[in-house]
Amino acid sequence: MLTNMAAACTRSLLKVGWTMLDSPAIRRPGTIAYLYRRAYGTWCSGETGGRSRLLSSLRGGGSRALGCAFLLGGGLGLYHTVKFYWVQQHLAQEHPKESDRGVRLTLYQYKTCPFCSKVRAFLDYHGLAYEIVEVNPVMRQEIKWSTYRKVPILMVDEDVQLNDSSVIVSSLKTYLASKEKNMADILRCYPEMKSVNEGGKEVMEYNNKYWLMLSEADTALVYPEKGMQKEEMKWRKWADDWLVHLISPNVYRTTGEALASFDYIVREGKFGSLEGFFAKYVGAAAMFIIAKRLKSRHNLQDDVRQDLYKAVNDWVAAIGKTRKFMGGDCPNLADLAVFGVLRVMEGLQAFDDMMANTKVKHWYRRMETATQNHQGRH
């Protein structure tokens, strides 16, 4: 719709410009007003003062200058219309409205959230088409319709709501592997359960969230070797319970790193100008303090980088020297979870330090290729 409006406006500008340059009658009183009304239908309200000044300026040779201006405006409009249309077409090819299995997926997220990144890694690897709704982390108006107030949220066909990153991934993997169950039935296998955390706060948990709900035959296809399923579940849980808690203390380790991190968050997130300014400086200060508390809560070392390095090297050691991925020749759900968590540090000092001081680089680059090329599509 926006493309059509821009194209129509461009055509009008070009038409007016050429007419003004070619017509000898252009200097007659009222002609410009007529052309403008013809192009746009009517004068904009509140613009009558501007109209009289415009007409006065056209006496003498001003009409030709204005004609050139209309042509310039039309040319620029045509350029941006074509560019916008190309971008739309490119994005439509990259993320078509409907996935290969005929379901429509909409992901509500914060781009820099590690749990959201986990879900995107899964969707990209399996070549599932999805739309993204970036949620404003302050107002969260985009998810005001939901009683569940966290992200990620994945809507399936606009009527089935999946919450919690691990539930989303397990449900979708079950759906892809079973080829017979619908999403509503699968979701019933992951019931909600309220509990109280260490701080005395009531939280929502989900039973079975690391399990795939498959038949024996389908399970054998997904996990052809003994112990594969157990190993995958163990490391998926490790990514949620340990690895993710190392991110904040490392990216907000110093005031400089905190500011750099929030500069990235504001650029990538859905913030207004004023809101972004306050988010950057107030948020950076707040997260620097929170990172120190997290460091204490999780008993991290004074140099939190060492905990990150150890965790990442433990992960690489678990994969071993004979496998490309924990899943063997192809990534499994644990690979995708760890990759999704680590990926949110890209562009920050913590990421560069991790790549330089651990053995994760080769595995990480293989994961990048696998997700970018949608290698799990088939």
Rank of each mutant, 00 (worst) to 15 (best):
A184W: 07
H298P: 05
E98Q: 09
L176R: 04
K181H: 09
G328S: 08
S56K: 15
W145R: 08
G50F: 15
A121E: 04
L105N: 03
M213P: 00
K226P: 01
R188S: 09
K179Q: 13
F277P: 01
N207A: 14
D218Q: 12
D124F: 03
G327N: 05
S273L: 15
A7Y: 10
L55T: 07
E158K: 13
L91C: 07
S45Q: 12
A217T: 14
E205T: 12
Y36N: 02
V82S: 00
Q89G: 03
E94C: 05
K209D: 00
D307P: 05
K270C: 07
A121S: 15
T10M: 03
L35Q: 02
L154F: 05
L172S: 01
K83F: 11
L21I: 09
S248L: 12
M1R: 07
L246G: 02
T48S: 13
R323T: 02
E94F: 04
T48V: 10
A291R: 06
F288N: 05
L308Q: 01
I247L: 09
A258Q: 06
V222S: 00
Q229P: 00
V151F: 01
N250F: 04
H126G: 02
M155Q: 10
M204C: 05
D302H: 09
S99R: 02
H95R: 14
Q349D: 14
S273I: 15
T322Y: 09
S215P: 04
M326E: 02
K359A: 13
L294R: 09
T31E: 12
K83H: 08
G62C: 08
M228E: 15
R27P: 00
F351D: 00
L212A: 01
T31Q: 10
G320H: 05
G102M: 04
R149W: 11
Y264I: 07
H80Q: 14
A217G: 05
W86Y: 07
H378R: 13
E142Q: 15
K295P: 00
H126D: 03
H298L: 02
S178G: 01
F277A: 11
R267E: 14
A121V: 05
